[in-house]
Design a protein around this nucleic acid. Structure first.
Lengths: 361, 361
DNA sequence: CTGAAAGCGCTAACAC
DNA sequence: GTGTTAGCGCTTTCAG
């Protein structure tokens, strides 16, 4: 690996001249010198060492990205968008960490980022407690969280970008209601986060609007263990069992996200129930997987690309010094993608002579 | 951020003493001094700056991980295992990059890694051409590739860790044959990689064993565009169409991977075909998603965790100087997970009086 | 316009 | 045993 010294020697100039061309201060430079330096750079295949540069400038073109588990397709999706945009727009690379929803792992990730000179982080946490994020900000980091802030009143030190989860759940729930469902359930996993509680509020709001608040319940599976997202099948089975044996079995289910909906489908099927004949199901996220499930999942599409870009922009634009221009940006999901997992509730279907054509053999 | 100087001052010792305790050279040190230094470190919340350290040592505890797209659940799965193991076992963080199967993006990722002082990389590439990897090795990197090497004869500069794709495909194909299938197809995407061609060889080998070589064809969809993996639904539809209109329609299909199998299921369903009644399907990978599909997918489970660990171990253990102790480690997948996507072929099913009970309405 | 020189925070000889 | 010191590769005043 050649150094700036080598280039300087090769071009017969001083290192600072080379440094100047490296940093674009070429305006007041003799053409010929510039050309010589550039030639030397090419000849020696010189690439400035980011590390040495950062030691001096205190900036390293690295973005931290913290996710519960990159094996979860939703986080994989977000991560891809974040990485691509950070790279193309800002020339940043991303340093990723799985936290398995563990407080300590999150904290340790921040420590390492700091040690690596990384000062910009995007956090997708399932932890309601944001104090460790605030602490990171105090230590000079710019942190952007993918969720609403917990305390809308207080000034937070961390930026927030999130989908309008309240609205997403409301849209999903209304869709079920529009199809005639009156016994509703919201399926989620143990552990409360802002996003989950907002979704539940949206679910309840839609139920209340329709005078169905009494018939809208929340069922909870899990929790997701350290293996997290691959265990979704079991959680779905759990939940399916819960719902099937409920005295007044719900007919329309809003799942906290697409993966849960997929797990639920599997669980329901194991219990001998068919979607949408016996139960209707709507998800939220809009994963590409929802399009190829059987039945294809009706879901609320979140604007993932836009949110990812907004997070990167926030992380890059803000100055770490001031905790001032911190904000919250909420993206409203507007698109409900209708596919096959929602139909009329069983009773209505029967009355209309559509359902129970094929009995469970 | 406090520095080693601050700590030295606080503990009233010299920086080298502090450096010594930081690097575990505490054996020939007075208890009391050690205690004082440690106290100072805690008091000042001192964390050594990795960058400065690396500038000196030429080593940075970062592992590069290059994947076609982290949104692909299989790569997400591998990435999670790699990250977790690298972190827990070696204290390394991982720097990730999506290459979208693009030669230039891969090259540019390597450039950046080099500039960041990263010298160890795990590459999951869909590019058959390995020259850019060799070049990276020449520049002092340790690179481990997730695939067989292209030229088993020649000495390669890059390490290889891979599943036994030949065997995996053979197991999958034999399973179909054992169920009575005689018209076989292998479903893949455009673009040839070592892993794909090995799978095809395994497929053909199993067919030949059973004297079915004549009835074993390869169908190809795609290619995966830059959005890659989210487009799998369309590819599946394509392929389904191809197979349905083939003059002698295959009854047993081996999919190049689970995602392809899932896409194919959706495509087949759209064409009015039912799995496994009309067609049997087996995947390879063992994604958690295969367990919750409908029907649940029969698949060959790859030892992902073991392979991820082997890759990390290789990347960490090898010395960058010598391109000598390079090797190839092939993991044999032994487990076929039987689920619901394989049944007898339609003709046999009819003869046995099991199938076509419910006609396509 | 270009060069010399002082560090950024840490490590590792080499002295004492 | 502990302190001094010379860099790692680069940026950035500050002279010339």
């Amino acid at each position: 690996m050649s150094t700036i010294q080598d280039v300087a020697r090769h071009a017969a100039v001083s290192v600072s001249t080379v440094s100047n061309v490296l940093n674009g201060r070429t305006d007041k430079m003799r053409q010929e010198t510039l050309a010589r330096v550039e030639a030397a750079i090419v000849a020696l295949q010189f690439r400035p060492n980011t590390l040495a540069r950062q030691l001096k400038t205190g900036q390293t073109p690295l973005l931290g990205l913290l996710v519960p588990s990159i094996a979860n397709p939703m986080y994989g999706y977000i991560a891809r968008e974040v990485e691509t945009f950070a790279q193309e727009q800002y020339g940043y690379r991303v340093l990723i960490g799985n936290t398995y929803r563990d407080q300590e792992k999150e904290a340790s990730f921040f420590e390492d980022l700091l040690a690596h000179g990384v000062r910009r982080v995007i956090v997708i946490s399932s932890l309601a407690d944001e104090r460790h994020l605030e602490r990171a900000v105090q230590r000079g980091m710019v942190v952007v969280s993918y969720d609403r802030r917990a305390t809308p009143g207080e000034t937070s030190e961390v930026d927030h970008v999130a989908p309008d989860n309240f609205e997403a759940a409301r849209i999903a729930t209304r869709h079920l209601i529009a199809h005639g469902h009156t016994r509703l359930a919201f399926a989620t996993v143990a552990g409360m986060t802002m996003s989950r509680s907002n979704k539940i509020r949206g679910f309840h709001a839609a139920a209340s609007e329709a005078g169905l608040r009494e018939h809208a319940c929340v069922v909870e599976g899990g929790p997701l263990n350290e293996y997290g997202d691959s265990v979704i099948g079991e959680v779905g089975r759990d939940l399916a069992r819960q719902m099937v044996k409920a005295e007044a079995r719900p007919t329309g289910i809003v799942a906290v996200n697409d993966l849960m909906a997929l797990g639920l489908m599997a669980g329901l099927r194991e219990m001998g129930l068919s979607v949408p004949r016996d139960m209707s199901l709507v998800g939220m996220d809009g994963l590409f997987l929802s399009a190829i499930s059987n039945p294809a999942l009706t879901t609320v599409q979140l604007p993932v690309t836009e949110m990812a870009r907004a997070m990167v922009d926030r992380a890059m634009t803000r100055q770490s010094e001031s905790g001032k221009d911190v904000g919250e940006r909420v993206f409203t999901p507007t698109v409900l993608i209708e596919r096959e997992s929602v139909g009329p509730p069983p009773a209505i279907a029967q009355a209309a002579g559509t359902g129970s054509r094929k009995a469970n053999t």
